[in-house]
Design a protein around this nucleic acid. Structure first.
Ligand SMILES: [Mn+2]
Ligand SMILES: [Mn+2]
Ligand SMILES: [Zn+2]
Ligand SMILES: [Zn+2]
Lengths: 133, 133
DNA sequence: AATAATTTGCGAATGACTTGCAAATATGAG
DNA sequence: CTCATATTTGCAAGTCATTCGCAAATTATT
């Protein structure tokens, strides 16, 4: 475990929500080149220590977001992303296992990965845009 | 409805699976500049005539895929993507409406959009990689 | 210590997508 | 039809996240 990997893992571990590579690169405790950050994010994910998904938002563009994963077998989470304040809301553990198995049975394919997330307006941003009228 | 828009819509309408902008740009019946293709795909989506999602695959990279949408209110589909042959398998109409409402209730947010898709190995590709051993 | 393997920083490249702008088309009132 | 206005297009250049080549720096092995 190199310094870069330790530092990245620490930020992911303490972050309440998924973080993008660009966020990590700007993070004060991440004093490494962007190439190092990207390379190690791949490494962490392939080691099962991180999860990621690609999300597009008008303001920040298309980026991959990473979150800490305790163990290879532990269930990951899915998220809601607010288009206004850009915060993520944790929807809890993934509950798609049975559904995926049913699809695997029905179609004969093997699912290696799945992507699921929501985007919209969070409670707070709904009220503030409403009062802005 | 300009020629470019008609041509794009026709390809989307007759395609069995979601298609990327790069695919459309190379398509024989799409004789338009890439900027025109991208601009009109945005247009079609904002008019409710197309749906899209971003998918990353090792071989083709990260791209947005478009599919035809009959009417603004009609349910879209979700898809499985094979990492080997790159074909999409239609999983049918979206069935997440009630689940999304439940989350909206529980968290107070409003969902504007959601992304869901699977990746893995299709039946055919599983057997051909198995026999390759 | 000497050698081999891995990781890092830097700068350049990649690839999807976007943008500025002037030419081409379409729209439409008179 | 005709001139004026609005929209769309092609081209070339730009943007932005991510990747790559390569040589220097670290780390692990012998
Ligand atoms: Mn955002
Ligand atoms: Mn693919
Ligand atoms: Zn918000
Ligand atoms: Zn396949």
């Amino acid at each position: 475990m190199t310094k870069a990997r330790k530092a990245l893992l620490e930020v992911l571990k303490t972050s309440e929500e998924p973080v993008s590579a660009s966020h990590l690169i700007k993070h004060p405790s991440i004093r490494f080149d962007q190439a190092t950050v990207y390379r190690n994010l791949h490494y962490l994910e392939e080691q099962g220590m991180a999860d990621s998904f690609i999300l597009h938002c008008t303001e920040h563009g298309t980026e991959r977001y990473y979150s800490y994963r305790n163990r290879e077998d532990a269930s990951h989470h899915h998220w809601f992303h607010c288009q206004i304040c850009h915060r993520f809301i944790d929807l809890g553990d993934c509950r798609y296992d049975e559904q995926l198995s049913r699809w695997e049975q029905a179609y004969g394919f093997t699912v290696c990965d799945h992507t699921f997330f929501l985007t919209g307006l969070c409670k707070a941003c709904k009220s503030s845009t409403a009062s802005a009228n």
